[in-house]
């Protein structure tokens, strides 16, 4: 028998009072133990979906089940299973991090003694213990975000939802946050992540859903998605760009400036061909890199394709 999915979203819909249709009947499944990326441009419906899962937003159709528990019908039981790290700071900045964590546990009915032990544990793990008894308003932006992760861990959730937790956080803190969340995931907690740093999603997540305009435009494993990338763009730093460029098969090479070349390599064409052609033209490559993150290339293409398809359909209908 297969295990109960961590999350089943079934034909979920949300139309706000002003008529905006934020979710147009989306469905997806997240397996237990997964590290799942939920991506989409601004206004795509990600935060609405997370709002419904955490009961901050009332759905207007469909349902979501967290480990088999319906958010609509058994809200309180479902909420016991999740931890939420929201996009915006949402704690009382005049309270102390230790109190914020202990109170959060209290709202879940966790006895104070246990809550105090957990608060110490998670504040230490997120390197906030030395700030535990200072007012939260004195914390830096990165510290406030780590505090929200510590707070979300107080009920030791089976499903942790992180809504753009690293927005505006420097690279060092971001990495330490991912180290912590990866550890939590390795220990068995299912993690759903939304982020605009696609490199992060590519590195951390095993499965992915892309939302745009309230519909799912892609829902697959990260490996399968990246395998769809049929063209990859590389940037070469070279000693000197000659007047005439080589034209190896399946590779479009173009000059950016006198020391930079850009190559669009179609899938199935080896880079060796390009290097051989460059050597034949006495072009020495000093270094090379991907122009953009691979997932980013795909993401932009999927979202654009979806919009172009919709525009074409509307034109046809008209």
């Amino acid at each position: 028998m297969s295990p109960t999915p961590a999350l089943v979203v079934d034909d979920l819909r949300k139309t706000y009072g002003n008529g905006v249709e934020a979710l147009k009947g989306i469905s997806l499944t997240v397996q237990p133990g997964d590290f799942f990326a939920l991506l989409g441009p601004n206004g795509a419906g990600k935060s609405t979906l997370i709002g419904i899962l955490s009961s901050l937003v009332n759905s207007t159709g469909g349902d979501a089940r967290i480990f088999g528990v319906s958010v609509n019908k058994q809200r309180n039981e479902a909420m016991k299973l999740i931890g939420l790290v929201p996009q915006e700071i949402n704690f009382n900045v005049f309270e102390k991090p230790f109190d914020i964590c202990v109170n959060e546990a209290g709202f879940y009915g966790i006895p104070r003694r246990v809550a105090m032990e957990r608060a110490e544990k998670y504040l230490k793990e997120l390197r906030l213990w030395d700030k535990a008894h200072m007012q939260a308003r004195t914390l830096s932006g990165g510290m406030k975000r780590r505090l929200m992760i510590a707070r979300a861990m107080m009920n030791e959730p089976k499903l942790l939802i992180l809504d753009e937790p690293t927005a505006g956080v420097d690279i060092e803190i971001r990495r330490s946050m991912w180290q912590f969340v990866s550890g939590i995931n390795a220990a068995g907690t299912t993690v759903i992540l939304t982020t605009h740093y696609l490199e992060e999603a590519e590195q951390l997540c095993r499965n992915i859903a892309i939302i745009d305009h309230g519909t799912i435009v892609e829902n697959t494993s990260m490996k399968q998605l990246l395998a769809k990338l049929d063209v990859e763009t590389f940037v070469f730093d070279v000693t000197e760009v000659p007047g005439e460029l080589p034209a190896p098969p399946g590779i479009a090479l173009r000059r950016i400036d006198e020391r930079t070349l850009e190559a669009e390599v179609s899938r199935g064409h080896a880079l060796n061909t390009l290097f051989t052609a460059l050597s034949a033209h006495d072009i020495t490559v000093a270094s090379m890199r991907n122009k953009t993150n691979r997932l980013e290339e795909l993401f932009v293409r999927l979202v654009e394709n979806g919009r172009n398809g919709k525009a074409a359909a509307q034109e046809k209908a008209a």
Binding site: S54, S55, L56, R75, N76, E77, M79, K80, I82, L84, P86, E88, I89, N90, F91, N92, V93, I100, N103, E104, F107, Y108, G109, R151, N155
Partner: peptide, 18 residues
Amino acid sequence: FGAKFSRAVEEMLVSPMP
């Protein structure tokens, strides 16, 4: 209202507390 304004009320709203 202060909790609503600062959105700290969400701490309680997302909890299983009746």
